[in-house]
Amino acid sequence: MPLTNPWLTEPMPAGRLPRERLEERILNLLSSQNMCVLATTGPDGPLATPVRYYPLGFTVMFTAAPRSPKVRNLEADPRVSAGIFAPLTGLASSRGAQLFGQARVLPPGHPDRERHWEAFRWENEHVERGRPLTEPPADTLIVVEATRIVYTEHWLRREGFAARQFWKP
């Protein structure tokens, strides 16, 4: 039987992608998607929450209600993992990342908020919530700077690279 993608058969290549190419692919994924599953840990165990994020380099950020379970978890233990993935139509299209880092909760008035808000498309959320665009955002901002990323893309196997690649700053 003919194979559509014969390069998906064994053996799996083990090549490492050059850093510049890996970073380009990760940034492309982060910029082309807007949803992730954020994993936190709390008193009742793990919590995986879908959130809409905005990227700034290798940082993802999102807003959250100050009393939400994820914010309570982050205040107790800021270690997080975020799963970001492109739509899957088959193994050849498999592309995603596990981003690991420490979440920072930036309430209104925090000095680090301003540089992040410049990249945050808050206007979209304001319109959805019926807020005027002339009113500056006052939501709690969560910022996760990646300390490690595990990137997976099976298409890399076509060029002799391992499907799973590892990035650190």
Rank of each mutant, 00 (worst) to 15 (best):
V144H: 08
L88I: 09
A138G: 14
A65I: 01
F62H: 07
R19A: 14
A97S: 05
R157N: 05
L17T: 07
R164T: 15
M1S: 12
Y54T: 14
Q33I: 12
V80E: 02
W122R: 06
G130P: 02
P13G: 01
A39S: 15
Q98A: 06
P136S: 12
F58E: 01
L22K: 07
P108Y: 03
P78T: 05
E145P: 05
P11N: 04
E128S: 11
A138C: 09
L30Q: 09
T4K: 15
H116C: 04
E10F: 08
N34Y: 15
G160H: 01
G109T: 07
P43L: 12
P46V: 07
Q33N: 10
R19C: 06
R129Y: 03
I142M: 06
G160T: 02
P137S: 14
T40F: 11
R115Y: 01
T140D: 10
L8A: 02
E159I: 00
I142R: 04
G96D: 06
R52T: 12
W167L: 10
F100Q: 08
A65V: 03
T63E: 13
V127W: 09
H110R: 05
P111Y: 03
G15S: 03
T9S: 07
T147S: 10
G96M: 11
A82R: 02
R115G: 05
A65C: 03
R72K: 14
T147A: 05
Q102M: 13
P78D: 09
L141C: 09
F166P: 10
P87V: 02
R158K: 14
P46K: 09
D139F: 13
R67C: 03
D112R: 11
F85P: 02
G130W: 10
F120S: 00
L56H: 14
D44I: 00
R19Q: 15
R115L: 08
P107K: 10
L88Y: 15
P11Q: 06
L141Y: 01
E75P: 00
P13D: 01
N124C: 00
F120C: 00
L38M: 13
I84Y: 00
H154A: 05
R121C: 04
R95S: 10
A65Y: 12
A162F: 09
A48I: 07
I26P: 06
G45P: 00
S68H: 04
G109S: 12
Q165T: 03
H154W: 12
E75T: 07
F58S: 08
F166K: 14
A146W: 07
I84E: 00
V150N: 13
N73T: 01
N5S: 12
T40K: 10
T49A: 05
T63G: 13
P11G: 04
L17H: 09
R148A: 06
V127K: 11
T40V: 09
P111S: 08
H126M: 13
A39P: 12
E10V: 11
F161M: 01
